[in-house]
Nucleic acid binder design. Structure first.
Length: 496
RNA sequence: GGUCCUUUGGCCGAGUGGCUAGGCAAAGCUCUGCAAAAGCUUCUACAGCGGUUCGAAUCCGCUAGGGACCUCCA
């Protein structure tokens, strides 16, 4: 089956066909490193990490470009231009690049916790000022930008006469052009809908570069256009990002690149929906953010406990990326338990020795069901990354795995090849595609030795019906977070 | 105000007109020294009203609630 993705540009699911067979160019808008990443940021980077992993699974060679926005851009056109990064740096008495480095490191750390693969290229805006200036020059030469007092603006009105500005975001150009904004400096622009390509820098502005139009800094939208063009070409396959970036950011990217390269830059625009908290989007402007470090430690009034990176990753995968996802501690707790149960079943599955069974099916019905659920893994992913459905199927299989282990279902019910397929599919989807990983810290050899000793003592106690000792060991271990489970055959299991 | 989206059982969330989504919680049972885990079973919902249809959570309309974007935002 062919992969289908929802293209925001055409507003429908389309069969994915890459421009260059076997290769995919993918660009995702990265973080602005002027602050700490919060829960909302986890969604796009995990979503597109799964897409990246799935494309590779499908056999594509993928160049995944995700930028770092480290050049502060103005907060609002026309208003006194403020360099976000520069401004905060003053307050914290740090060099701008020191701050950028700090938050970039933190970002990298958080997303490695999420087991996100590193992008193929992670370009920084400050490292591509030259490319951005070149691109602006080209746009001016093409006649779609004009300079005013050291700033350069894109001429949206002119662009709209030939191209469909507003198509991606469903904007009506006349509304945009007639929109009136009571902002200072608005007079500079020929039309309120015009956006800045280059802003002249006020003297107090720390981040500044020389340009043909004077000292200043690049507009926000131009960095993505410049870097995407440089590393992926004039036309590339996938551009991803949060829905809130559709307008004006992505709309403007299309305009800039189209004028510069004479071709619409992106084949498939993909946008993830927002994470909400009490029904409201999580965002700086709403003052309702929960930072990732707070999620990991549980140190936030809205959190009843700490939540591990894998719990959060699983929580995000349990909903479809284009649906809004409402955060609550309760929902995270549910995901934590669900993930634990699923991973446990997966671990059990890994231990199966399929050779014990044969090629003679003793339960045709079950065999058929299992095979069907497994086949659907791929179908569901092909259908615009329906991760929740894949997970639902995994949960259909979990009781079967557990029953096979406990002997409630004879192992001979399924053929060798089915067991092997199940093992293979679970491994590929859980680990390679979903990027989930074991969080148990049971790998330490010393700890293992100590635990073996404790279990031996407890087994002896149990055999002597010394339940006081047996329970003491179990309860005290539970107090420090080690869960003991007795098994049917008298064995014992433990997890942290 | 404009554009668009959304409203599913106690909670979270899939849902392509006809077939049990799934998870968490809760209850009962089985297993068990007791637990835990596991297994089985129960709880069967689609905001309201009207329409289309043999048949609608799914399509259309109206009403009500919620949200996103229009300004930095993933």
């Amino acid at each position: 089956m062919a992969l289908k993705v929802y293209n925001s540009y055409t507003r429908q699911k389309e069969v994915f066909e890459s421009i260059t067979p076997g290769h995919v160019g993918m660009y995702v808008c990265g973080p602005t490193v002027s602050g700490e990443s919060h829960l909302g940021h986890a969604r796009p980077y995990i979503t597109f990490d799964v897409l990246f992993r799935y494309l590779r699974y499908k056999g594509y060679k993928v160049r995944y470009v995700r930028n770092i926005t480290d050049a502060g851009h103005f907060e609002e056109e026309g208003r006194a231009a403020e360099d976000k990064v520069g401004k905060k740096a003053l307050l914290e008495k740090l060099e701008p690049m020191e701050l950028v480095q700090k938050y970039t490191n933190l970002f990298h750390w958080a997303f490695s916790q999420f087991n996100c693969l590193e992008p193929s290229i992670e370009p920084t805006a400050t490292g591509h000022i030259v490319e951005q200036i070149d691109m602006i020059k080209k746009i001016i030469a093409e006649g779609y930008a004009y300079e005013v007092k050291g700033s350069v603006y894109f001429d949206v009105k002119k662009y709209a006469t030939q191209y469909d500005y507003g198509k991606l975001s469903g904007r009506i150009i006349d509304d945009l052009l007639s929109a009136t904004r009571e902002l200072d400096g608005q007079q500079e622009k020929r039309d309120p809908a015009d956006f800045a390509l280059w802003k002249s820098a006020a003297p107090e502005h720390i981040m500044r570069w020389s340009s043909p139009w004077g000292v200043g800094f690049p507009g926000w939208h131009i960095e993505c256009s410049a870097m995407a063009t440089k590393y992926l070409g004039a036309e590339f396959d996938i551009h991803g990002g949060g829905m809130d970036l559709q307008f004006p950011h992505h709309e403007s990217e299309i305009a800039q690149s189209t004028i510069c390269n004479h071709i619409s830059p992106v084949r498939y625009w993909m946008h993830n929906n927002m994470i909400t908290i009490n029904g409201k989007k999580m965002g700086k402007s709403y003052n309702n953010v929960i930072k990732l470090t707070e999620m990991f430690t549980g140190d936030h009034p809205l959190l009843t406990q700490a939540f591990s990176p894998m719990t959060i990753r699983f929580f995000i995968l349990q909903s479809h990326y284009r649906s809004p996802l409402d955060f609550s501690s309760e929902a995270l707790v549910a995901s934590e338990k669900a993930f634990k149960r699923l991973w446990e079943a997966y671990s059990i599955l890994k231990e199966f020795k399929p050779d014990e069974t044969g090629e003679n099916v003793t339960d045709v019905l079950l065999e058929g069901k299992v095979l069907n659920w497994l086949e659907e893994f791929d179908d569901f992913m092909d259908d615009d990354l329906s991760t929740p459905k894949v997970i639902a199927n995994m949960f259909e299989l979990a009781p079967i795995i557990n029953s096979l282990k406990d002997g409630l279902i004879p192992i001979t019910s399924l053929t060798t090849s089915t067991i092997k397929l199940m093992q293979e599919k679970f491994e590929v989807f859980m680990e390679d595609i979903f990027g989930l990983e074991n969080e148990n810290k049971t790998g330490n050899e010393t700890l293992k030795g100590v635990m073996k000793l404790l279990l031996d003592i407890r087994k002896d106690a149990k055999n002597k019906k010394d339940f006081a000792t047996s329970d003491k060991i179990r309860n005290q271990l539970l107090d420090i977070g080690v869960l003991l489970k007795d098994e049917k055959d008298g064995g014992m299991n433990w997890t942290i």
